[in-house]
Amino acid sequence: MVENRYELNKNLAQMLKGGVIMDVTTPEQAKIAEKAGACAVMALERIPADIRAAGGVSRMSDPAMIKGIQDAVSIPVMAKVRIGHFVEAQILEAIDIDYIDESEVLSPADDRLHIDKSKFSVPFVCGAKDLGEALRRIGEGAAMIRTKGEPGTGDIIQAVRHMRMITGEMARLQALSEDELYQAAKELAAPLDLVRYVHDNGKLPVVNFAAGGVATPADAALMMQLGAEGVFVGSGIFKSGNPEKRAAAIVQAVTNYQDPKILAKLSENLGEAMVGINEQEIELLMAERGK
């Protein structure tokens, strides 16, 4: 039964592929996102850019606010819990959430352990900077992975770094011989069976999205060309001049990520992009939360 549940949860992520998951803070924004072509929405009280600006401890959103968003749209609704905060996860499962993001965007609740996600019926997505981190999260029961990137910055550099790191490490694993996998598992600090899966198949056993810093159609297409199977856009949409137009353009860019002519057209007259902060200018690296 549990095994079957995990398969169904991985299957839902497969249905989201080639799509854009958008951060929304109100039912109105959720409707705008759905109309613009979001394949799912992430319900949260403040988008990462505002969390960054406000400082302080940031936690799971008010369940009433999440329910409002669930009622507003027919697409899947995701929500974030703090790293290691399994009670926030129990609460989201109780309100029938479609996907839980155990997220470094919120303040971590546990500086050592992540949630034992295999205990839950509801699926989890987790962030990763490298292959070891991705496989540890999958070992704990994550049914989907995303790059961490650096949320709320509008700067794509970290998402690129994380995606290249993960694909590079997978290619290296593939090139190893069978008897080298034990040592590789030790070095990656990852479960041997998952290391073996990557060695045999050249990909993660779950869907892998890009997240953190996507602000333009070109950013989204860049991540897709680097091997992402879909894209999360957080602050990039509702912190920009024309959210509806930008959202729709990013959705189309993910579909036709290999067609520069279409991408050129999509990039025209989108109004102002979110201002953005460079990684050197920020004091808090959210990607360093939870290893």
């Binding site: 989201l16 799509g19 072509g37 394949c39 697409i75 899947p76 959705v251 579909t255």
Partner: peptide, 11 residues
């Protein structure tokens, strides 16, 4: 295929 029908309809 499977996916989100609202997304496909829009695209």
């Amino acid at each position: 295929p499977g996916g989100e029908s609202t997304v496909m309809g829009k695209l």
